Simulated scan of single mutants.
Amino acid sequence: MIDIREAHDRALHGFGTRVHAIRDDQWDDPTPCTNWDVRTLVNHMVTENLWVPELLGGRTIAEVGSALDGDLLGDEPVKAFDASAIEATEAVRQEGVLDRTAHLSFGDVPAAEYLSQLFADALIHSWDLARAIGVSDRLDPELVEQCARWFADSEDSYRGAGVIGPRVKPPPGADAQAKLLGAFGRACA
């Protein structure tokens, strides 16, 4: 298994590579995420990134309040993503970060679990963004394997909370990526 901090960094880098491939005319294009266009998807990831230093720093959602609500992309969405990714990566790399607790909306979790959630979000949304903008949607096989192992124990709770859609059955002979995406409710065909 890859250290969760490295897995997060690699998944976030994969998403960032795709952000840099977005053409100016693609920001309003639809994504596989229901009701989200490219801009909304990237804004979601920027928001997630900006929560990382707050939550790994011990703050609660109530303490942060609405500071991270709304459009955080402004007129330079790629720069906004890059800046947020730097902040998240720096927070994840802090010494002792895995000994911390993150105060999430549904309760307190160990930092490693929070990072697993962030890692999975960045990885799956990399595929979503790639599909939306027409670039390679191949994900890092090591990250796919790690995410699948973690998600096997989390899938039911994610689905029960309404965070993901119904499971999509992959076609016969599907590879690990298609199986993982199906578990997250994505059809790869």
Rank of each mutant, 00 (worst) to 15 (best):
residue 72 L to A: 09
residue 172 P to H: 10
residue 46 V to Q: 06
residue 5 R to G: 01
residue 142 E to F: 04
residue 161 A to Y: 08
residue 107 G to P: 04
residue 135 V to E: 13
residue 65 G to D: 14
residue 29 D to S: 15
residue 166 P to I: 12
residue 21 A to V: 03
residue 118 L to S: 14
residue 10 R to P: 01
residue 130 A to Y: 05
residue 54 E to P: 02
residue 148 A to G: 09
residue 127 W to G: 05
residue 109 V to N: 06
residue 157 S to P: 00
residue 144 V to F: 05
residue 28 D to W: 03
residue 77 P to E: 10
residue 119 F to I: 06
residue 26 Q to W: 00
residue 76 E to M: 02
residue 177 Q to P: 01
residue 2 I to M: 15
residue 143 L to I: 01
residue 168 V to H: 11
residue 153 D to C: 00
residue 143 L to D: 13
residue 21 A to T: 07
residue 144 V to I: 10
residue 2 I to V: 11
residue 59 R to S: 14
residue 34 T to A: 15
residue 36 W to F: 15
residue 42 V to E: 02
residue 90 E to Y: 10
residue 5 R to S: 04
residue 146 Q to T: 07
residue 43 N to T: 13
residue 18 R to W: 07
residue 180 L to W: 01
residue 135 V to F: 10
residue 101 T to H: 09
residue 86 I to K: 12
residue 97 V to I: 13
residue 8 H to Q: 10
residue 160 G to P: 00
residue 88 A to V: 02
residue 133 I to E: 05
residue 8 H to I: 05
residue 151 F to N: 07
residue 185 G to S: 06
residue 16 G to D: 04
residue 187 A to M: 01
residue 4 I to N: 09
residue 29 D to V: 11
residue 189 A to V: 03
residue 82 D to I: 07
residue 31 T to F: 07
residue 129 L to G: 01
residue 146 Q to G: 12
residue 170 P to V: 12
residue 137 D to L: 00
residue 180 L to Q: 04
residue 57 G to A: 11
residue 101 T to W: 05
residue 56 L to Q: 03
residue 128 D to F: 00
residue 83 A to R: 12
residue 125 H to Y: 09
residue 36 W to Q: 03
residue 35 N to H: 15
residue 54 E to L: 09
residue 101 T to V: 15
residue 168 V to N: 02
residue 23 R to T: 12
residue 21 A to L: 14
